Simulated assay, not measured.
Amino acid sequence: FCRTISSTSVQASDIRPLPVLRETMDYLLHLLDSSEHQFEIVHDFIFDRTRSVRQDLSIQNIVNAQAIQIYEDVIKFHILSHQKLSRSSQDSDASSLCYLNMEQLMKCLLSLFDMYDVIHKNNSQSSKETEYYSFYVLLHLGCKIPKMVDSLSLWYGHLSASIIQSKEMVFARSILRFYHLGNFKRFFCAIAAEGTDLQLRLLEPFLNEARVRALMYFNHSGYKLQHHPLTHLSEILMIEELDLETLCRLCGLEISNNEDTKAFAPKQASFCVPASIPQINGIYISRENQR
């Protein structure tokens, strides 16, 4: 799996045909549910082999519905890894894996978009196109992601109106807008109510970044005597109250306890954005939590 595309020693017999690549991808996705080894080990194994699958597709210059489905599955693997690795990112090895995984996710998305452009010329399209385009938009929420190729406004100009107006893209653009406007109630409500499973998994590692940003806004607003109850904030930010308290203390906020109600006073000069924001287990927002 160290073979490079430029290698002169590659024989035709070394290249796997499309049906074999499809079977390989199915096998690798099946391994994602393995509990025999730690996820980091499973991730490394699948990571190397999905790169090899993509190499074989590139060498053969295969661009069709089956090849696109394989790329979509590779991206699905990277999104699931993005979620799971972020939960253990306090470990330095896991942090490096997170970065490499994100880097490959971006490369796969851009390659997939090129493949979409090719099949569009034949009046064909993938049923998952709009969702996968939305992933690129949602990745702009993160502050530690690889540098994007173009600004979003320029990138939108290359997309058709049907893609821009799709529910997946409307959702992604709304989430980005709510975040930048500081409308965190609508931000979290929209995520819980409208996001697809993969969109939610992609967003999960960014949610605590959004919560810290919200706490900064709450701390800078209001009067010193008008405390912010954690019970109320936990409902807005969709996080367990104990986890929110941990996040507040990590940001340097002093929590008061009055008649069994925990709250913090605004205008605390001790507030700071943590250099490392932990990914708390259980912050994944599912529709079941909203019923």
Rank of each mutant, 00 (worst) to 15 (best):
C2V: 15
C2Q: 13
T4S: 13
S6G: 04
S7Q: 10
V10R: 05
V10K: 01
Q11M: 12
S13H: 12
D14C: 04
I15W: 01
R16I: 04
P19D: 06
V20I: 10
V20N: 08
R22K: 14
T24K: 15
M25N: 07
D26Q: 08
Y27R: 04
L29G: 02
L32W: 05
H37V: 08
Q38Y: 13
I41V: 15
V42E: 03
F45A: 06
F45Y: 14
Q60M: 07
Q60A: 08
N61F: 11
I62K: 05
V63I: 08
A65H: 14
A65Y: 13
A65K: 12
Q66K: 03
Q66E: 12
I68R: 01
Y71H: 07
E72D: 03
I75D: 03
H78I: 05
L80I: 11
H82P: 01
R87W: 08
Q90Y: 14
D93P: 09
A94R: 06
S95M: 10
L97K: 08
Y99N: 03
N101A: 02
E103L: 12
S111I: 08
S111D: 12
L112S: 00
D114T: 15
V118R: 08
V118G: 06
N122E: 10
S127L: 14
T130D: 14
E131P: 01
Y132E: 09
Y136A: 11
L138S: 02
L138F: 02
L141Q: 04
M148E: 11
V149A: 10
S151D: 14
L152N: 07
S160R: 15
A161G: 04
S162N: 08
K167V: 14
M169C: 08
V170Q: 12
R173P: 07
R173T: 15
S174W: 07
F178L: 11
Y179L: 10
Y179W: 10
H180G: 06
F187S: 01
F188N: 04
C189M: 14
I191F: 02
T196K: 06
Q199K: 08
L202Q: 01
L203Y: 02
F206T: 00
E209G: 07
A210N: 05
A210D: 05
V212A: 02
M216A: 11
H220V: 15
S221T: 05
Y223H: 13
K224C: 11
P229C: 00
P229L: 06
T231Y: 14
T231R: 10
T231Q: 10
L233V: 01
I236Y: 05
I236C: 03
I239T: 12
E241S: 04
T246Y: 14
T246K: 13
T246W: 12
L247Y: 06
R249C: 05
L253S: 06
I255R: 03
I255N: 03
S256Y: 06
N257C: 11
N258P: 04
E259D: 15
T261Y: 04
A265Y: 05
K267A: 07
A275V: 15
A275C: 12
S276G: 07
P278T: 00
Q279K: 08
I280T: 09
N281F: 14
G282E: 07
E288C: 04
Q290T: 10
Q290H: 06
